[in-house]
């Protein structure tokens, strides 16, 4: 299990990196390498050129810009995990990070790498989708910004063009006091989830749902939102019966894969159950406790 040969490049600026990916044949961007190098060792991926972004300082860091947290694509998961800013402004991300791999992989793995690998069971794409984050993509042609929903295109697939590099992810923060919940089920702690669910709620007067985000992983080609359930609940009080019906109906239509870890039925089952748990936690935190399962 040794990788195929490649040439290694270590640009020190984004401009250099963009030149490289625009001009090299069959390049691959190396971020933290925690998925990519494993796939290279298996020879599932055989780039001719590896462009390592680790020495590009401008790609790393967490910055508070008003109501938005801008996170450089090369920011290590470890930095997110121990960031007070993240714990305070993006508590859902903080909670989800506890489920991301292991100590050794979080030390090296990056947020941009996770979003670009886009494993359907990964946590950080789910978090980006939950927040309606936007991603900034750069190429020699210029910069563009698209929503996480558009970026996370499908199974291990993103909207990144061959000459582009993911520069940063911008997370609009939710109002202080919003409720959130995150539940996922993996066979062992730290494994990729079989399925997971995140919920965020903002309640208005009379416990009316003003804002709701329900996001799942493990049950589709990529992380996905329960749009219909969200729409059905916004503007209403949280009613556990209505909520359950909406979730059951919407999840039932999902078409997750059958694989060595789980059947599609089981993934749907988990999605329903974990969504209810996540919403119950979120509701509780937002000040409108509801029945738990």
């Amino acid at each position: 299990m040794k990788p195929a040969p490649f040439e290694y490049h270590r640009p020190t600026s984004l401009a250099q990196a963009l030149d490289l990916v625009a001009t090299l044949e069959n390049p691959k961007i190396l971020a933290g390498g925690q998925s990519l190098v494993a796939m290279m060792n298996f020879r599932f991926v055989q780039p001719d050129h590896l462009v390592d972004l680790a020495r590009i300082g401008e790609l790393s860091g967490i910055e508070e810009q008003g109501n938005v947290l801008r996170i450089g694509a090369m920011t290590r998961q470890r930095e997110l995990e121990f960031s007070d800013l993240i714990a305070r402004r993006l508590p859902l991300m903080h909670a989800a990070l506890d489920h991301v791999g292991h100590r050794q992989t979080r030390n090296r793995g990056t947020i941009g790498g996770s979003l670009s690998h886009n494993d359907p069971s990964a946590e950080l794409p789910l978090v980006a989708l939950a927040f309606d984050a936007s991603v900034e993509l750069a190429s020699r042609r210029g910069k563009r910004r698209i929503s996480a929903r558009d970026y996370l295109r499908g199974y291990l697939e993103t909207a990144l063009e061959a000459d582009e590099i993911l520069v940063a992810i911008e997370f609009p923060c939710w109002r202080e006091g919003h409720g959130f919940g995150f539940h996922e089920f993996a066979r062992r702690h730290g494994d990729f989830a079989i399925a997971g669910a995140a919920a965020m709620i903002e309640l208005g007067a009379g416990a009316i749902v003003e804002r709701l985000s329900i996001t799942l992983n493990g049950v589709g080609a990529t992380a996905l939102r329960l749009d219909e359930t969200e729409a059905a609940m916004i503007g209403h009080r949280l009613d556990s019966v209505l909520l359950r019906r909406a979730i059951l109906a919407e999840v039932e239509r999902l078409e997750p894969v059958d694989d060595v870890h789980a059947t599609a039925d089981y993934r749907r089952h988990l999605a329903k159950m974990l969504t209810m748990r996540a919403i119950a936690d979120a509701a509780q935190a937002a000040g409108a406790p509801m029945a738990r399962i």
């Binding site: 079989i194 359950r244 089981y266």
Partner: peptide, 21 residues
């Protein structure tokens, strides 16, 4: 596996209440 256990529990009606609650 947990999946198999849920299958067995489903067949035993363990989730009926949830589904129709």
């Amino acid at each position: 596996t947990p999946g198999r256990l849920v299958e067995l529990l489903t067949a035993a009606g363990a989730y009926d209440e949830l589904a129709f609650g």
